[in-house]
Computed example of a mutant assay.
Amino acid sequence: MVSLNRPRRHYNPADLDDEELVLRAKSELIHTTTAYEELMRRYQRTLFNVCVRYLGNERDADDVCQEVMLKVLHGLKQFEGKAKFKTWLYSITYNECITQYRKEKRKRRLLDALSLDPQEEAEEQELQPQASKGLNSLLVHVNPIDREILVLRFVAELEFQEIADIMHMGLSATKMRYKRALEKLRNQIDSPFI
């Protein structure tokens, strides 16, 4: 008779690469989350930094990170591995950041339409620590798509093809927007009014 409680072969998740962890997580997720937790641990800080840079505040970034981790947990079984795990993860992150950004934009429009004084919200945001103030203040001068390209390139350290895949753009268009965004940032840095 075969024992159903037979011990699983132990492994050190830190010794495995992303592909091996994905395979393990897919087979383990009903029973254990060891491989999944290692995947999230590896990308947690960068994921948070990407969200903060895109959304502009830590509160929303934390919410989006939690949502991304849940989507990865529930979607990992369907991950086919056609792209790298890292690319898939940042694609989910990008989409969640856009969703959050749109929610905040609608909320601001609603406050304006209702003629409410958003002073209470402004005071709340003033109390938050300003992470990477210098880069964030420069990124506000770049449109949201170009800002995301810069964030994915510098913060997430993705290749141009990975960025193009995440943003559903052609490779040459991605590189062109990246180059123009860098040029705009350089002009901002050189400007005497900053």
Rank of each mutant, 00 (worst) to 15 (best):
A156V: 04
H31G: 09
S91V: 01
E124R: 09
D18L: 04
N57I: 02
E183Q: 11
L182H: 10
N136R: 07
P192L: 05
L111K: 08
D165P: 02
K84I: 05
E148T: 12
A181L: 00
L23A: 13
M1T: 15
S3R: 15
L70N: 10
K175G: 03
A61W: 01
E126T: 06
Q188K: 07
L152H: 06
H74V: 12
R102K: 07
R102F: 12
V72P: 03
Q130V: 07
L171R: 15
A35V: 04
L29P: 01
A181Y: 01
L171Q: 10
E104S: 13
K26M: 01
K84V: 04
R177V: 00
E96H: 05
G81K: 01
K82L: 03
S137N: 10
S172K: 05
I149C: 01
S3N: 15
A156C: 07
T32E: 14
K105T: 11
L89C: 08
M40T: 07
T99E: 13
A14W: 15
C65M: 12
V72T: 10
L89D: 05
W88F: 06
N143Q: 06
S115W: 09
N143S: 03
F48H: 14
P129R: 11
N12V: 09
R106P: 03
Y36G: 08
Y101C: 08
L4A: 14
K26P: 00
I92N: 03
E28L: 03
A173Q: 02
D117G: 06
R42M: 05
A113S: 13
M40C: 13
D18S: 07
V64E: 00
L110R: 14
Y54K: 12
T87Y: 03
M69H: 06
L73R: 13
E28N: 06
C51N: 09
E19F: 14
M169W: 01
A25M: 00
A113K: 08
R6C: 11
E19R: 13
V155I: 14
I163H: 02
E37A: 10
T46F: 13
K84C: 08
A113C: 15
M176G: 14
P129Q: 09
E19W: 13
L182P: 14
E159A: 12
R109K: 12
G56D: 01
G56R: 00
